[in-house]
């Protein structure tokens, strides 16, 4: 049997919906682990890269400095980088803040929002440990080179399966119309 392909996954400014969708491949997961091995990923809770990976799956765009750092790390550590889902491809829902100045967003979230009750000292989180927010939410392709993209919010499990199958086997695959969606 050929050597197993090594896969790493991460969620940047995403909601983990794409990872959930990956789990939606159901019993095909058993076929998948026959041919791949997961390295750094929230699925197996491996926190650090232990070796060079073949495929990196990126969920979510970049909204802060930590996202950029992780994304660059993935680019260095993975031969093929795949943007999974609308957020990774175009910023997605977090990017809806792109038309609003960052200060206005923070003020609304921590000071002026109608649901803000507990913040009696009127402080905005500013611990140096916290990642710095970027002025806008950026798609992954604006930060590093992305080799492939899988659209969807989240991508259909069949689409994820078809893409992974194609990447692992190296064979081209037909994508049925019904599974290729942006929502």
């Amino acid at each position: 049997m050929a050597e197993k392909k090594i896969i790493a996954t991460t969620s940047l400014a995403g909601c983990f919906g794409c990872h959930m969708s990956l789990l939606d491949i159901d019993e095909r997961m058993l076929d998948l682990i026959e041919v791949v091995e997961f390295n750094k990923s929230p699925i197996n809770d491996i926190k650090k890269f232990t070796r060079k990976c073949d495929i990196g799956l990126i969920e979510g765009g970049c909204c802060n400095s930590e996202n950029v750092h992780v994304l660059k790390l993935f680019r260095e550590s993975c031969k093929i980088l795949v943007a999974v889902g609308e957020c990774a491809i175009m910023g997605g829902l977090p990017a809806m803040r792109n038309g609003i100045p960052l200060k206005e967003c923070i003020d609304e979230a921590y000071l002026n929002g109608i649901t803000v009750h507990a913040n009696v000292n009127k402080t905005v989180p500013n611990d140096p440990e916290l990642p710095v927010l970027l002025d806008k939410v950026y798609p992954c392709s604006a930060v590093v080179k992305i080799d492939y993209s899988i659209p969807g919010c989240p991508p259909h499990a069949d689409l994820l399966w078809a893409t992974l199958y194609a990447l692992v086997t190296g064979k081209e695959t037909e994508i049925p119309y019904e599974v290729f969606k942006y929502d």
Partner: peptide, 25 residues
């Protein structure tokens, strides 16, 4: 932003992108 759009699924621009299977611009 297709995921939040009321027209998603009935949108002609989106449908054209589906037709040509555009993954990312």
């Amino acid at each position: 932003f297709c995921p939040t759009c009321e027209k998603s699924g009935d949108c002609e621009l989106q449908a054209l992108a589906y037709k040509y299977q555009i993954t990312a611009p």
